[in-house]
């Protein structure tokens, strides 16, 4: 049962993620992104991490993608009109794809996987909180700071500064 669910959710996640990339209609892409995120949330539930699953749904599927859709609708992008790729883009993406394939293959053939650890009890809320406020305090703060910088950047970029008038 758990295996079947794992394969279902994994297929859902990967197939929808691929559809997000190759879809020409932005609204379709956003909808597939939601399904893909739901698949990831399902995988988290199978790992006994219900908290992560619901936070993922709440933040990404519930709010972030809703904002994406909001922007897509306001911009009213018409699907289909795409520029052909430049030569440099083609070469770069081919090289990138080849590197990825080589990396995955070498991982598959040469990596030594440790034996599966004994299953541990599902983490409690307290465990999450303690880890976030002790071991991972610095990464959390750094990520928060980066988000703040991104937000400030957007405000600066989108604000139309008045050109100071010449003092004559």
């Amino acid at each position: 049962m758990a295996d079947l669910l794992f394969y279902t959710f994994a297929f859902l996640t990967l197939a929808c993620a691929a559809l997000v990339v190759i879809n020409k209609n932005a609204v379709n892409a956003a909808m597939f992104l939601i399904v893909s995120l739901v698949g990831v949330a399902g995988l988290f539930v199978l790992l006994d991490a219900a908290l992560l699953a619901f936070v993922l749904l709440l933040v990404y599927a519930g709010a972030v993608v809703a904002l994406f859709l909001f922007i897509i609708m306001l911009l009213d992008t018409t699907p289909g009109a795409m520029k052909p790729f430049k030569a440099a883009t083609m070469i770069a993406s081919t090289v990138g794809g080849a590197l990825l394939v080589v990396g995955v293959l070498s991982l598959y053939h040469r990596a030594q996987f440790p034996a599966a650890a004994a299953p541990v009890a599902a983490p409690t809320l307290k465990a999450y909180a303690e880890q976030l406020f002790t071991t991972y305090l610095l990464p959390v703060q750094v990520v928060g700071f980066m988000l703040l910088i991104a937000m400030l950047g957007v405000i600066v970029l989108s604000k139309k500064f008045a050109v100071p008038e010449d003092v004559s």
Partner: peptide, 25 residues
């Protein structure tokens, strides 16, 4: 009876907005 009950309610009910957005669009 989930231990993350309130979070589950918020998470799932936040998906309800897509019904309205998609219907309108």
């Amino acid at each position: 009876n989930l231990d993350v009950g309130i979070l589950a309610v918020f998470a799932v009910s936040s998906l309800g907005v897509y019904s309205l957005i998609i219907a309108g669009w």
